[in-house]
Deep mutational scan, measured.
Amino acid sequence: NQESVVAAVLIPINTALTVGMMTTRVVSPTGAPAEDIPRLISMQVNQVVPMGTTLMPDMVKGYAP
């Protein structure tokens, strides 16, 4: 099972992602793949992402898996 990126903390809208904001988990439906964490760092979210929420590609500005 592939791990997806999950918010480790509450991420406010327009916040640039840091490694400490993200964790990985096997979830369904799958979100952004765990191996993309290095690409996701410094990208901004376009909505509030509550802690424990799977990071879906459409939540991150300019990100395409």
Rank of each mutant, 00 (worst) to 15 (best):
T53L: 06
M51V: 10
V9L: 07
R25A: 11
N1F: 12
M22E: 07
V45N: 02
S42Y: 08
Q44T: 13
A34T: 05
P65I: 12
I37Y: 00
I13E: 13
I41R: 00
T53W: 14
S4Q: 01
T18P: 00
A16W: 14
G62A: 07
A32V: 15
T24W: 09
V26F: 13
M22P: 07
R25C: 09
N14M: 08
M56A: 04
G20W: 15
P57K: 05
L55D: 00
A7H: 00
V60A: 01
G31Y: 01
A64T: 15
T30S: 14
I37L: 11
I13R: 13
N46P: 02
P29E: 03
M59L: 08
V9R: 06
E35L: 12
L10H: 15
P33V: 06
E3M: 13
N14Y: 12
M59P: 00
R25H: 07
M43F: 06
Y63K: 04
L10Q: 07
T23F: 09
A16P: 13
D58Q: 13
R25P: 07
I13C: 12
E35Q: 13
A64V: 15
K61A: 11
K61L: 11
M56K: 01
T30W: 14
V27S: 03
A8G: 03
P57Y: 10
Q47K: 02
A32M: 15
P12D: 10
P57W: 15
V26R: 13
A16T: 11
P29F: 07
A64E: 14
I11E: 01
T23Q: 08
R39E: 04
I37F: 04
V27Q: 03
T53N: 08
K61P: 11
G31R: 03
P57G: 04
T18G: 04
I11R: 02
T53G: 08
T30I: 15
S28L: 11
P38T: 09
Q2S: 12
P38Y: 11
E35G: 13
P57T: 05
T24F: 09
I41W: 03
N46A: 07
L55K: 03
V49C: 05
T23S: 11
L55A: 04
A34K: 10
V6F: 04
P50R: 10
T53P: 01
P38R: 08
I11S: 02
A34R: 05
L40G: 02
V5A: 03
A34G: 09
E35V: 13
L40P: 03
K61H: 12
A8C: 09
M21C: 08
V49Y: 03
S42C: 11
V49L: 03
P65R: 09
N1H: 13
L10I: 06
P33Y: 06
T15K: 03
P33N: 02
A8R: 12
P65M: 11
N46T: 12
N14H: 14
I41V: 14
R39I: 12
A16Q: 12
L55M: 05
L17Y: 07
Q47Y: 08
V19S: 12
P38D: 08
A7G: 04
M21W: 07
R25L: 09
